[in-house]
Amino acid sequence: MKFSTVAAPVLALSTIVSASLFAPTAALAQDTHPAAAPVKNIVLVHGAWVDGSGWKPVYDILTKDGYHVSLVQEPLTSLADDVTATKRVLDLQNGPTILVGHSYGGSIITEAGVHPNVVGLVYVAAHAPAVGEDEGALGKGKPSYTAQQPGAIEKTPDGYTYLNPADFPKDFAADLPIAQAKFEAHSQMLTAAQVFTTPLTAAAWTTKPSWGIVAGNDKIINPDLERWYYARAHSHTTVIPGASHSVYESRPQQVAAVIEDAAKHAQQ
């Protein structure tokens, strides 16, 4: 009886000590979560009047760094057509994807970004309207330099727009080599005027993390409008002083760095 009387408290104490030793370990195991792997799929969307080839400097950096990069060549015939073209490329991705848009491409990714493969958005000197808004109306509130220049934006009889080739180098591409800017001025993709005035039916930035780049010397989109978009979306914002609207071509290292930051942190 003496043995059992002494043993019981010792056994109880042993149980308490064991529990106290293992409890922190169990709690630590519950609180520790492996960090999400960086996103490896990147989809790049161009804007009005240009095609996807302008993304090549950024593409080269991202692919060298190990990312799987796809480009959308949207037809620029309507917002619906351009969103469909983007979703078609998103369907081909094998997992989580960062969706990147330049200029009018921002409106496209805002609507197409609800696609389930998209985990983050990057706006590069881009529009980011909300549901029911269109970039044309928003641009009137904070007009760009180009929008205030008579004759800078031309329109064909069948409703397609282009930037006057004489104005293109200084307005769209002031920090590109002049020969390159002139070539782009004469190789424009004419863009249906209706894409600028079609209200959005979805706004992915309301539910997914976003990053935004302000081109400090943008003449196509007012930099203050870009700042306003990104502030409203609570985007991680980077300002690149002195950059033109062609920031994705003239400052590819800085643009790629923002995209890679999104890829590393979008799922955290």
Score class of each variant (00 low, 15 high):
residue 97 T to N: 05
residue 151 G to S: 02
residue 190 L to R: 03
residue 125 A to T: 09
residue 146 T to C: 02
residue 205 W to I: 09
residue 174 A to R: 08
residue 99 L to M: 12
residue 138 L to G: 03
residue 150 P to V: 04
residue 114 V to T: 15
residue 147 A to L: 09
residue 201 T to Y: 02
residue 200 L to A: 12
residue 146 T to N: 06
residue 209 P to W: 00
residue 161 T to K: 04
residue 136 G to R: 14
residue 211 W to Y: 13
residue 127 H to G: 06
residue 217 N to M: 09
residue 209 P to D: 06
residue 133 E to Q: 15
residue 143 P to V: 13
residue 127 H to W: 13
residue 201 T to A: 11
residue 176 L to W: 06
residue 157 P to S: 10
residue 103 S to R: 07
residue 164 N to I: 04
residue 103 S to T: 11
residue 132 G to D: 12
residue 180 Q to N: 10
residue 120 G to W: 02
residue 169 P to F: 02
residue 189 M to E: 00
residue 191 T to F: 01
residue 186 H to M: 01
residue 176 L to C: 05
residue 174 A to L: 05
residue 159 G to P: 03
residue 199 P to N: 04
residue 103 S to N: 08
residue 112 A to D: 11
residue 199 P to K: 06
residue 165 P to L: 07
residue 124 V to N: 08
residue 124 V to Q: 07
residue 132 G to S: 10
residue 199 P to S: 03
residue 161 T to G: 02
residue 216 G to W: 13
residue 208 K to L: 02
residue 91 D to R: 12
residue 95 G to H: 05
residue 179 A to N: 02
residue 102 H to M: 10
residue 213 I to K: 12
residue 220 I to N: 08
residue 205 W to Q: 13
residue 170 K to E: 11
residue 124 V to P: 07
residue 146 T to A: 15
residue 126 A to G: 08
residue 224 D to M: 09
residue 127 H to N: 11
residue 98 I to W: 15
residue 148 Q to E: 14
residue 217 N to T: 06
residue 117 N to T: 12
residue 133 E to D: 15
residue 152 A to Y: 07
residue 149 Q to K: 15
residue 214 V to N: 12
residue 196 F to Y: 09
residue 123 Y to R: 05
residue 90 L to Q: 14
residue 104 Y to G: 03
residue 92 L to S: 15
residue 100 V to S: 14
residue 153 I to K: 11
residue 183 F to P: 00
residue 207 T to I: 13
residue 203 A to Q: 13
residue 186 H to V: 04
residue 178 I to M: 05
residue 207 T to P: 01
residue 219 K to E: 05
residue 185 A to Q: 05
residue 211 W to V: 11
residue 137 A to Y: 09
residue 116 P to K: 14
residue 167 D to W: 01
residue 169 P to Y: 07
residue 205 W to H: 15
residue 181 A to C: 03
residue 137 A to L: 12
residue 148 Q to G: 07
residue 108 I to M: 05
residue 171 D to Q: 12
residue 169 P to A: 04
residue 204 A to C: 04
residue 103 S to K: 11
residue 141 G to W: 01
residue 222 N to G: 07
residue 147 A to I: 06
residue 205 W to G: 07
residue 148 Q to P: 05
residue 220 I to H: 01
residue 161 T to S: 04
residue 206 T to G: 03
residue 188 Q to K: 00
residue 109 I to H: 12
residue 224 D to P: 05
residue 143 P to D: 10
residue 175 D to H: 10
residue 162 Y to M: 05
residue 98 I to Q: 13
residue 195 V to S: 01
residue 120 G to L: 05
residue 143 P to Y: 09
residue 209 P to T: 04
